[in-house]
Amino acid sequence: MQNKKFNSLFLIRAALVVSFFVVGCSKDPANPSNPGNESETITTFKLRFVQEDDTTRVFEAQWRDLDGQGPNPPTISGFSLPANKSFKGTVKVLDETKNPVVDLTEEIEKEAEAHQFFYIVSGANLTIEYDDEDSNGKPIGLEIMATTAGSSSGTLRVILKHEATKNTTISVPSTDGDTDLDIVLPVRIQ
């Protein structure tokens, strides 16, 4: 008889301990059908060339993928540049999924020591040089100088490296660090 009492007492205690753990450790489980939030991404890259001898002549190339990793391919518009001219180039990087649109260029400028753009030309008669530097005197690549030669066509590959060793050769991207951006723009010179 005494045993029986003891058993039921034990069971009550056990149940108490159980409910304590179950209730105590789980914040009430959130509703699995509730949606969450999204993180920021780069959606748009713009490169604007202003012709040195005639600043009214402006050329723009753009790489844009509004659904990020989504199934829709990016929309790309390339350069069609006059031959044998020089241009001053500026870069813009945007996150257009946000409202208002986030201009990531400012962030890159702020952390200029940790960022570097690389420009690799293939096929086209186009030369690109850095036209800016960070506080350590190392290139960033947000501002560039471009020069065209004879008629040709090819591509311009643009890479943005983050936390990489800075490299002064514009066409040789560092092999360490992270890649924030790696895109290809078509280029035609005539």
């Binding site: 489980p29 959130a30 509703n31 699995p32 059908s33 509730n34 969450g36 939030n37 999204e38 993180s39």
Partner: peptide
């Protein structure tokens, strides 16, 4: 049941 509460979804919420 599985609930996401981070920045992004690796797998969806499910039951």
């Amino acid at each position: 049941f599985n609930v996401n509460s981070g920045d992004a979804y690796l797998i969806p919420n499910f039951e």
